[in-house]
Amino acid sequence: MSARKDPEGNETKHLHQFADFAGKRVLEIGCGEGRLTWRYASASALTVGLDPDKNALRVARIDRPSDLADKVHFINSHAETIPFHKETFDIALLAWSL
């Protein structure tokens, strides 16, 4: 039993219509296994994925392409306590997480 999610790529298309990720510092809240992360991270200057699920983050780190290792990072945390200084990011993405 497996589902193919969004085979038409509607989510990616609409996301890029709403935000220009080029050169931006991006915080993704609820990144999970990084399914959405890989659809914009290569354009960003820095991407941090936040998720409380350690197992999901393990998958995300394994799937991280080697050329994104320097600019895509995953942190085990809740959105209620974001471990960064104020005004660190240009874009915050609530990914199926509100």
Binding site: E11, A19, E87, A92, L94
Partner: peptide, 18 residues
Amino acid sequence: GEIHRVLASGGVLIDLRP
């Protein structure tokens, strides 16, 4: 509120959900 704190001035919040 936390997201607002870590966003730069003029920063963008994207809410994507079913």
